[in-house]
Design a protein around this nucleic acid. Structure first.
Lengths: 111, 111
DNA sequence: GCGGCATATAGCGATATTACTATATTCGAG
DNA sequence: CTCGAATATAGTAATATCGCTATATGCCGC
């Protein structure tokens, strides 16, 4: 396997490595949304949504479609949804154990 | 979907978000390996391999098995391999375009 | 127990990410 | 062309991550 592909994969996963971006992708899994819709559904400030969308756009995970002054975003590839499904299966397999779970819940409290 | 699950997913993807860790997981996909074997196959210093294994261990992506003084590592869940396969499919779908590709190749040169 | 091998961790500068605030861009209405 | 709404970007301080060097742990043979 070429080294460059591994870097692409790593960058790709890094693009997914953020709770807000995961939430955005899960919402987009059910269809195209405007920035404003995402902003309201996720209860986030506008610049944060745009910033995270920029990260996803940079890796071509998400595709913008301009409609006048608004922009609709959609998943570039439905396989992204499959990826999230596999990730969830892994969790269901108790790959993340209780100990880690509790530790992470504490981190959540701090955010 | 609970917020905590999104954080778990994000942390999980973050654990994958590194070229060395991707390489490790791909090697482990073909079976259990000792730290030394990984170190030689990937041409890396020992502390680097241990450090990255620690990250993967922390998310239960990889499981150690002690054999005297040596430690063998294996994937905790074969689904991880499936995840990497899906990631590769996404690349094959040209989700990463040529422009991004060239930019990333330049980054590789700097490493 | 002691020496030595395999693995793990600590500590440290350098770099990258994050959330945030403020500002810029872009477009349609009138 | 000017205004206002929707989206994007700049700048910044706090935090996290990286690779590295040095050191620590754990286990086996003797």
């Amino acid at each position: 396997m070429p080294r460059s592909l591994q870097i692409f994969k790593a960058d790709f996963f890094r693009a997914l490595a953020h709770p807000i971006r995961i939430r955005i992708l899960e919402v987009l899994g059910s269809g195209e949304r405007t920035v404003q819709e995402l902003q309201e559904m996720l209860d986030l400030d506008q610049p944060i949504v745009s910033q995270q969308l920029a990260v996803l756009r940079g890796k071509n995970i998400v595709t913008p479609r301009k409609l006048g002054t608004t922009t609709k975003y959609a998943l570039s590839d439905p396989l992204v949804t499959r990826l999230l499904v596999v990730a969830r299966e892994i969790f269901n397999n108790h790959l993340v154990d209780t100990q880690t779970m509790l530790k992470e819940l504490k981190r959540e409290g701090r955010r």
